[in-house]
Design a protein around this nucleic acid. Sequence first.
RNA 1: GGGUAGGUAGCGAAGUGGUUAAACGCAUCAGACUGUAAAUCUGACGACUAAUGUCUUCGGAGGUUCGAAUCCUUCCCUACCCA
Length: 403
Amino acid sequence: MFASLNEQMDVLKKGTVEIIPEEELIRKIEKSIKDKKPLNIKLGCDPSVPDLHIGHSVVLNKLREFQDLGHTAILIVGDFTGMIGDPSGKKKTRPQLTFEETREHGKSYFEQASKILSKEKTKIVYNSEWLSKINLHDLIGILGKFTVQRILERDDFTNRMREQVEISMHELLYPIMQGYDSYAINADVELGGTDQKFNNLIGRDMQKRFGKEQQVVMLMPLLEGTDGSEKMSKSLNNYIGISEEPKNIFGKTMSIPDVLIMKYYTLGTRLSTKELNEIKAELEKPETNPRNLKRRLGFELVKLYYDEQTANAAIEEFDKIFIKKEVPDEIPEIIQKEKDVKLINLITANKLADSNAAARRLIEQGGVTIDGEKVTDINFTPSYKEDFVLKVGKRKFLKVKIN
RNA sequence: GGGUAGGUAGCGAAGUGGUUAAACGCAUCAGACUGUAAAUCUGACGACUAAUGUCUUCGGAGGUUCGAAUCCUUCCCUACCCA
């Protein structure tokens, strides 16, 4: 029923940065094959994030691969820890969420994650189940097993100390609580991004200190966003959301720098090692135009979250707008009744620009066309005699109908 | 509780009485080019206005002044040192 050790390790090591310790994972898998018992794979999800993006998909894809190998995914919704906020990679204290908010986000996280995970093989638990039951007495017992130095060791805290940025008391507890989760659910393996190394290792410590078998920590790389430098995140607006419209998933993929193509293939899709090697070879050929591989990447991503047909349609639309510079098939329409509205006001009223000043700037800079004709007069008023297509900037279209 | 340094546009960071809607960098947007929402180059980047111009903004509130991000009073917030 389980794949062989080598097959499993091949899949699991794909794209993975670090396995701590690898021998222990091998041992666990051997034992699982022998006893026909799946491993518990823990993934903590952060309910402060309402929308999942390709960056989150990196660990989720790995978790899916574990599932495909027969193991059990345990998704821990950090509804309790979410009230603290993970200090990982943060320069500031996070805003604290209420319990209700974390619950809601947790639900939506699971719904979105289901696009990647196999629902039947996913156990979903909320860490408030056990964390809310810990009283101060228990907490003192747990805290006594760790030292201040051990907690302050982590980079984020060290940096914040150095840069004189505040650290709130409750943030120190975050790794402890997350580590306690591993103990509570008997995790065999904990998956996480490399920024989770510290937290995940505390989980290992925690299990050891309470006399349990220790989890193996598996770390996945962090995926850079479409800007090519920063980690993908919603706040930096360099993300590709997995629930976004197909044309946006595709378009945003086309905007990643060429150097990231291979990384996105490896971490964002679930192509096999063999397929990845083929793409890599192709990419390295001097006669290859990277654009074509980026197109295929965009196709694969849309296919993953929608289907093949939608993916093809997304390519077509992209070509139409950006290569042939034509008008897409489906664009928003309005019916314009008033006849003496100036173009500037028409643009602002339909939210194609934030303010009249912005609309004026767009016209001045040559970013506005009517039926393909560039408009440069900022005082222009359309005649409103027949329907026309208004294009503002690179990708905002509006069909104005006269009734 | 005492002391010190701070809080400036989406972010970072200049500016310490008037030519400051506020340098510069990043981000963003537009144009040119192309292999594309890549790269590069050019430009724009508070709001209203056809324009001259007007209004709002430098943690909050009040004040001094012809004139304040800049001076005074008071309040709020943060870091560091001492206790």
